[in-house]
Design a protein around this nucleic acid. Structure first.
Lengths: 108, 108
DNA sequence: TCAAAATATTCCTTGACAGGAATATTCCTA
DNA sequence: TAGGAATATTCCTGTCAAGGAATATTTTGA
C-alpha cells in the first residue's frame, strides 16, 4: 500500500500509469506520448515494476508494459474503510458489492 | 490527485490517516499513539492539511484533526477508470453504483 | 498575571531521489 | 556478422523533504 502511494507520488509516473489505462505500451511509445527521455522512462518503469504496478511482456526487441490489477484492487479495499466518512446512504449497497467480491475471491 | 498520493507516500503520514479513521484526534494523541514526536506530528499534519486530507477544529487549547472526505472520493473516482482491468464480472453492478452516486450528486 | 500545557515554526543536517549524459546490453536485420 | 534499434544501467549533480533540537505562540488555570 505504501509502496503504491510512493510510486504514484511522482508526477511522471502517475502520467505513465494513467496512459497505460489505454493498454500495453512500449517504452518508446510511452516516452513519446509523454515527452520524456528514454532513460528516465525506463527508470520510472523500473520503479513502477518494483512496486508491482506494471509488468513487462517482451516481444523481440520491444518491451510492452502494462498495468497489474492487484495494487488497484488493494487500493479499492483500502478505500472501503474510509467510505463511511461520507455518503452513508450507499453503505448497504457497497456492503452488497463487497460481499459479492468476497464470495468471488473464495471460489478461486 | 497527485498531491494526495504525495501526502500519503510518507509512511508516518499514512499511519496518521489510518489512525484518523477512528475519528478526530488531538495532535498529542496522534503523537502518542504512533510514537512520534510532537513537532514532526505537527509538521506531518501540516502537509496533510495542505493536501486537503485533514481539517482542524480548535477547541480551547487543543486542536482536533479529522479526515476530509473529498480526497477519498476523488481517489474512488480515479480508481473507477482502472476497474475494467480486472473482474469484468462486476462492471454492471459497479455501473449501477456509479449511476446512483451520480444521481445523488445532481440533487445537491 | 504567570507558569505550564498544547501546538506550531524555524534552523540545521542528512539522505533519498529525479534528471542529464554517457554507456552497456540485447536483439533484430541487411 | 556488423550495424543499428530499443531498452536498461551507471554515474554525477542538484534539489527537496524528513527528523532532531530549539524556540515561538497560544491558551488555560491557579
Amino acid at each position: 500500500m505504501n509502496s503504491t502511494f510512493s510510486a504514484l507520488s511522482e508526477p511522471n509516473r502517475l502520467h505513465i500509469v494513467e496512459l497505460l489505462r489505454e493498454g500495453p505500451l512500449t517504452v518508446g511509445e510511452i516516452a513519446n506520448r509523454l515527452g520524456l527521455n528514454q532513460p528516465q522512462t525506463s527508470k520510472h518503469l523500473r520503479v513502477l515494476s518494483d512496486a508491482g504496478l506494471v509488468e513487462v511482456h517482451a516481444v523481440t526487441n520491444r518491451r510492452y508494459y502494462k498495468l497489474r490489477p492487484e495494487p488497484f484492487q488493494e487500493m479499492e479495499v483500502w478505500l472501503d474503510s474510509y467510505r463511511r466518512l461520507w455518503n452513508e446512504r450507499f453503505d448497504r449497497l457497497d456492503d452488497y458489492l463487497q460481499e459479492m467480491k468476497r464470495k468471488e475471491g473464495e471460489k478461486k
